[in-house]
């Protein structure tokens, strides 16, 4: 189903895009892959560097980085919004 939806926008494989993939699970978990680092960390806002010119801003309450490695990050807490901004 997910692959079919991707193919509708002309993408065969997600790894081809080379961009950040953001998955929001309910209101409490955000999974981000292919990110490039954390720019800001606080209880109400976490900024993740998506590419050279773009960042993702996760806003909410009681936010914490549940797990993080070189490319991936899991954020948990009460999620209000996921926004994108240029750097």
């Amino acid at each position: 189903m997910f692959d079919e939806l991707l193919s509708a926008v002309g993408v065969k494989d997600i790894s081809e895009i080379g961009e950040m993939l953001v998955q929001v699970v309910g209101r409490h978990v955000v999974l981000i892959t292919n990110m490039q680092g954390v720019l800001l960390l606080s209880e109400n806002e976490i900024q993740v560097k998506a590419s050279k010119h773009q960042k993702a801003i996760i806003k909410g309450d009681f936010l914490e980085v549940s797990a993080m490695n070189k490319n991936d990050i899991t954020i948990s807490g009460r999620i209000f919004s996921v926004e994108f901004e240029g750097i």
Binding site: L41, S42, E43, E64, V65, S66, M68, N69, K70
Partner: peptide, 21 residues
Amino acid sequence: NFMRELSKAQQIGIVVTKLKK
């Protein structure tokens, strides 16, 4: 400059969990 050190840690493959300010 916590974030700078954290990104360095990421680059060398250190996995961090339950990160809180």
